[in-house]
């Protein structure tokens, strides 16, 4: 029961990943691309947490933690670069 619901949730997340990817390729500006990339990262964090549960290996959640950290740093660096203050 719980696994079926999780599979549906995973499917919905995959769909939203694809939608963000569409915006990533059909972007109006650089900032658009960064936003869709950020949102794709955030969706991936949820998916990694889900994989942690389905595979039963607690170590995978560390990947999600580091991924979140790196994505935040990446966005901040791009924003600073755009403001010409890097």
């Amino acid at each position: 029961m719980a696994n079926t619901i999780l599979q549906i949730a995973g499917g919905i997340m995959l769909l939203s990943l694809v939608l963000s990817l569409y915006r990533f390729f059909r972007a109006g500006s650089l900032v658009d691309r960064v936003i869709s990339f950020d949102i794709m990262t955030i969706i991936s964090i949820s998916m990694i947490a889900m994989i942690t549960y389905t595979s039963g290996r607690a170590i995978y959640i560390d990947v999600a933690l580091i991924y979140g950290l790196l994505s935040f740093l990446g966005v901040v660096i791009v924003a600073r670069y755009l403001e010409k203050s890097l």
């Binding site: 919905i12 997340m13 769909l15 939608l19 949102i39 949820s46």
Partner: peptide
């Protein structure tokens, strides 16, 4: 507890989907 957790995860994924639709 597992079923409740799965439903909360499902609700979260719906919000993620809404975010992506909004993005488009």
């Amino acid at each position: 507890l597992k079923i409740i957790g799965a439903f909360i995860t499902l609700a979260g994924s719906v919000f993620l989907l809404l975010g992506s639709i909004g993005l488009i």
